[in-house]
Design a protein around this nucleic acid. Sequence first.
DNA 1: TTGACAACATACCGACTGGTCTGTATTGTA
DNA 2: TACAATACAGACCAGTCGGTATGTTGTCAA
Lengths: 208, 208
Amino acid sequence: MAKRAISKAGRGAESTRAAILNAAFMEFYHNGFQGGSLNKIVESAGTTKGALFHHFPNGKQELGYAVVDEIIGPILQQRWLESLVGSKDPITDLKRAFRQYVKEDIESGNYVQGCPLNNMAQEMSPLDEGFRKRIDKLYCLWRKTYADAFAAGVKAGKVKKSVEPASVAALIVASQMGIWGTGKSSRSLELMTQAGEAVCSYLDSLRP
Amino acid sequence: MAKRAISKAGRGAESTRAAILNAAFMEFYHNGFQGGSLNKIVESAGTTKGALFHHFPNGKQELGYAVVDEIIGPILQQRWLESLVGSKDPITDLKRAFRQYVKEDIESGNYVQGCPLNNMAQEMSPLDEGFRKRIDKLYCLWRKTYADAFAAGVKAGKVKKSVEPASVAALIVASQMGIWGTGKSSRSLELMTQAGEAVCSYLDSLRP
DNA sequence: TTGACAACATACCGACTGGTCTGTATTGTA
DNA sequence: TACAATACAGACCAGTCGGTATGTTGTCAA
C-alpha cells in the first residue's frame, strides 16, 4: 500500500488541512463556534470552500470536532498536564504553573479571550453531544492528571493524608475555569492574580 | 403629565415587552446570544418583529443588554446575594446555599445549561464592550457581597482573622463559575456535588 | 368627533450563512 | 503515455439572519 500522507496534488495537501485547522481555531476562539464564519476561515487560511469541504466533508461540525481533538487537546496537554505527570509535589508544581500562566496570559493579552477549551465547553456542550463528549474527555483527563499527582503527593508525604485527590482535582480545575472566565469580563489583572493567589494559599493549606 | 405605563394600544404594552424579554432570555440561555434568533424570540413570545423593534429600537443588542440588566441581574440577586447580605456567618450560609442550589439545579435539569450570567460573560465579554461592562458590574456586586459577608464574619469571630475577604470572595465566585461549567460538559451530578463539597471543606478551613 | 400617537402586524430587504456542484490542474500508478 | 484519483478553485444555491418601511388598529386628550 502506498503512503497516503505523501501523495499530494496541487501543493501541500496536509499543510492546507493544517492551515484550515489553525485558522478555524483562531476564528472559533475569537468569535465562538456558532459565530465563527467558514468564509472567514478559508479566507484567512488562504484557501477556498472547495478545500475545506474536501478535507472536512461534514463541514463546520467536523471542523469543530477536529479543532477540539487536534488543536485544543494538545494545547491542554503541553500547558497544564505535561508539568504535572509524574510530579511528587503537586502543590509546588501547581503553584508555579498558576503563577506562570496568569502572568503569561496577562502580558500577551490572551486573557481577554479566556480558555479555548472552556469557551467551547460553555457554548457547545449543551447543543451538540459530539462536542460534549470530546470536551468531557479532555476535562476528565485534566482532572485525572491532577488527581494522580495529588495521590502521588500524599504518598511522598508532600500532601496531607486527609485530602481526597479526586475532590481537590475537581475543585482546582473548576477554579481555573472560573479564574480565566473572571479575567474575560473583568479585564483586571489584579483580580486574576488575586484569585490565583487565593488558590495558592488554598493549596498551601493541603500541606501535611 | 399622563401616566405612560397605563396607556396601552393593542393590548398590554408592558406585558408585551415582558413577554419578549422573557422569551429572549430563554432563547439566549439555550442558544447563546449570537446563536439566538430574533424570529424564534418573537414567535415564542407570540408577537412580531414590529413589536420587538418598537420596544427595543436598537434591536438585538439592546435586547441583550436588557436581558442582562432586567432578568439575569435580579436572578443573581435573589439566588446568591439575598441570603448573604447582613450575614454574620458566611461559611454556614454559603455552604447551605451551595448544597441547596447544586441539588436544585440537578433535579430540575437546569445544570446542563449552566449559569446564565456566566454563559453571557464567556460569549459576549470579548466581543462587545457594552455587554462586558454590564456583566462585570454584576460580578463586582457578587464578589463585594461575599467579601462584605466575610469581613462581617471575621468581626463576629466566625471566620479566622487571617483571611483576606476580597481574595476569598474572588475564589469562591470563580469556583462557582467553574463548578456550574463543569456540570455542563460532564453532565455528572457526582462531579458537581464532589466539587461543591470540596468548596465546603475549603470554607471549613477558614474557621477560626 | 377628531386628530395624534402609541402599539403593534406584515411584507419585505440586502447581507451573509453553511453547503453543493462542476471544472481543472497536478499527481502517482499501471 | 494513458488513466484515475487527489486536491483544490470558484461559481452558485436555498435558507436565515437582523433590520426596515409601511400599514393598521386601538386609546386618549382636546
